[in-house]
Amino acid sequence: MKKKLLEIISLSKHFGGNTAISNVSFNVEEGLIVGLIGPNGSGKTTLFNCITGYYSLTSGSVMFDGHDITRIKPDKACRIGMVRTWQRVKPLGNLNVLENVMIGAFSKTRSAGESRKIALAQLDLLGMSELSSNTAGDLPIGLKKKLELARALATSPKLLLLDEICGGLNNTETLELMETIRIIRNNGVSIVFIEHDMKAVTGLCDRIVVLKSEQKLVEGTPSDITGNHDVIAAYLGKGYKHA
């Protein structure tokens, strides 16, 4: 039995009268990639916002590394080792790619030289070195998403929360990125992975959590999920063929 890194316990989130998440619980064990899937509007992004302190929960609690982090602040979440990317990308638009990544790296060092080194290494790992001096705001969407990842990684997280990181990438690029994510995991980083591309999710994830209409529909291994009739009916629909 692996150690639980993140525990989400009966989390609910209401916006006024609307329920965005209702009583969702699941765990993320150390060293795993957990996929989080569900139709648009099923509360995946909201879940990230709740875990990382951008929204306050309506009820429930969140544990990270054995500590209660239910009311954590976003910056504190990053400093204890949990970092997220944004589905609606948030590049530091007027800064260049290197500076963007350096700002992530500063959470581990005060020295500008040191953070530059970390950032350059990170960009190298993601094959973005030649973009270092490009202005972040001018990148195409696919690269902005990759920059989100680079920046988040530069904070040396224990847990990486990725929100639709493959958007805007073509098939080959998606495959490459999957490979990179696998490497990141092998370096000891646990990952929660929100994605629409089912192939990416089933190919990559160790476990999958399916949200539907604000609730957790099912949770299991990729083969459990792709074999589950409810999931096929509710989410995968006709478009999905068994691999």
Binding site: C78, L95, E99, T109, A112, T155
Partner: peptide
């Protein structure tokens, strides 16, 4: 400008949510 504080200030200027997600105490 060339220190961590400077980079953090620029990050805050550019996008406060992103800055916070990268560990910056706004």
């Amino acid at each position: 400008y060339r220190s961590r504080t400077g980079y953090y200030l620029l990050a805050i200027r550019e996008d406060q949510d992103a800055a916070a997600s990268l560990g910056i105490n706004l």
